[in-house]
Simulated scan of single mutants.
Amino acid sequence: MSAVRLVIFTRYPEPGKAKTRLIPAIGAEGAAALHRRLTEHTLAEARASGLAIDLRVTGAPEAAFREWLGEGLTITQQDEGDLGDRLRAAAAPPPVLFIGSDLPDLSAAYLVEAADLIRAGRTVIGPAEDGGYWALGLTARADYLFEDMPWSTAAVFALTEARLKGRGIEPALLPELADCDRPEDLSRWPWLAV
């Protein structure tokens, strides 16, 4: 099996465009700064995992991301469309592990565990507290996971798991994590409010 690609979706931390649901609580500058810290944390853990990083970006040209995050990264502009369209576009070639950039409790150990399972031929899901997922690892194309999905709802994880099981695939589950999206999430991670 080929090396597992770690695909990370992120956006440039422009005030007013990043972490917009947090703006009422911490302002546009604060939300952008928090997004910057989360992305940097995600990238540090990704680098520590030793996986090949494929950064999928939006909101600024590639050069702005290289200036911010450094060299040694594969950086590609995200495709147009909803999350399903962007996941489908980034799924080839497998094996692939998808994560976002808003996971304060992400660790390199979780990424290594997921990659080991994928290399062993397992499909992997990391359930999120909000009913979605924070990680999805695939050994082969699975476009059926990205079509007609009610993104950003509490149904995403259950529907993804059901679609896999409907095709005879029993996914390996990673520990449940929470993302930082809403003002009430901020009290859980005081280090983010620096």
Rank of each mutant, 00 (worst) to 15 (best):
M1Y: 02
A3M: 11
R5K: 09
R5E: 05
L6G: 06
V7H: 03
V7L: 03
I8N: 08
I8D: 04
I8Q: 05
T10S: 15
R11W: 00
R11Y: 00
Y12Q: 04
P15H: 07
K17G: 00
A18M: 11
A18W: 02
K19S: 15
R21Q: 14
A28N: 04
G30C: 10
A31R: 09
A31N: 07
A33C: 03
L34H: 05
L34M: 11
R36T: 07
R36Q: 13
R36G: 00
T39Y: 02
H41R: 12
H41L: 12
T42L: 10
T42I: 04
L43R: 11
E45H: 05
A46C: 06
A46I: 04
A48G: 07
A52R: 14
I53T: 08
D54M: 05
R56Y: 05
V57Q: 01
G59A: 02
G59E: 02
A60V: 02
E62M: 07
E62Q: 13
E62C: 09
E62V: 12
A63N: 07
A64D: 15
F65V: 05
F65G: 02
R66Q: 13
E67K: 08
E67T: 14
L69K: 03
G70W: 13
G72K: 05
L73F: 03
T74K: 10
T76P: 07
D82L: 13
R86C: 11
R88H: 10
A89R: 15
A90F: 14
A91I: 07
A92K: 12
P93W: 04
P93D: 11
P93R: 09
P94R: 04
P95A: 09
P95V: 04
V96N: 00
F98P: 14
F98M: 11
F98S: 13
F98E: 13
I99Q: 01
S101I: 06
D102F: 07
S107P: 11
S107F: 07
S107C: 10
A108H: 08
L111W: 08
L111H: 04
V112E: 14
A115R: 02
D116M: 05
L117V: 01
L117I: 00
A120K: 09
G121V: 02
T123G: 08
V124D: 09
I125K: 10
G126C: 07
P127Y: 02
P127F: 01
E129N: 12
D130I: 06
G131L: 01
Y133R: 06
Y133T: 03
A135M: 15
A140W: 07
R141P: 14
R141Y: 00
R141G: 13
Y144V: 06
L145R: 03
L145W: 04
E147Y: 10
M149A: 07
M149K: 11
W151H: 10
S152C: 13
T153S: 15
A154L: 12
A155N: 09
A155R: 14
V156G: 15
L159C: 08
L159E: 14
T160F: 12
A162L: 12
A162D: 15
R163H: 14
G166W: 14
R167P: 13
R167Q: 15
I169Y: 13
P171D: 01
P171N: 06
A172C: 07
L173Q: 04
E176R: 13
A178P: 06
A178W: 01
D179V: 01
D179C: 08
C180M: 01
L186P: 03
R188S: 09
R188Q: 10
W189M: 00
L192P: 03
L192F: 02
